[in-house]
Amino acid sequence: MTPNNIFKIENLEKKYGERKVVDIKNIYVNNGDFFVIVGPSGAGKSTFLRLLKYLEEPTNGDIYFEGKKLSNPLDVNIQRSISMVFQRPEFLKRSVFENVEFPLWIRGKKDNEKVEKVLGQVDIGNLIREKTSSLSGGELQRLALARAMVVDPKVLLLDEPTANLDPYNVELIEKIVLNLNKAGKTIVMVTHNVFQAKRLASSAGLLLNGKLVEVGSADTFFNTPKDARVKDFLEGRMVY
């Protein structure tokens, strides 16, 4: 095992009843990667991310985080090293400020300046005293990002972070996560949006019916994919 691995996945399987929803042989996510998994809706992308965060236990196989095998219940320090932005983020019935302060509070490290700084980074510094119920979809998504970023995690997991957002918010969020990655943050993102994947990924894979059909550097994956299904998907010819 190279110490460079953040995640190492071995024969990962998740079944719901008899249905295998995730079935991934061997992949690595390296330190500093922006790893993006694309795939149609229902491919198992969200389930895959939930497995990485150990919100669900794999039916078979292992996940290693920095060389440590994940098991249930997940070690709280590992839990806190991995921040996840959910496909449909939910918030506390409190202010914007308190929602971002919350993960710091958990760690016993409340820090007003940090909260203000990160809200500025996602460009909702002006909404700091608002209740979350008064925010728009794009603002909420950025709040979810702020809440994940504020604790400076080792990895960020992003589940369709711009689904259903307007182009302004999409661009803003992409800029923020790209900057984070440039600053060294490891990111694992899943999306059905090929164009977004292309704009962001340093390495990428296609998930179809729970199976990763091709994984590689962004350059290879997007420009010279070997698998016909990847070509079809990238060119929008895949029927789903």
Partner: peptide, 26 residues
Amino acid sequence: VSPKLIIQIRSMGTTSWQEKITIFSQ
């Protein structure tokens, strides 16, 4: 209190006490 919210809170690494207090306050 939304079960999804609870899962998301838990995923941040709350202790079980912190989780209970938070649910209570919600």
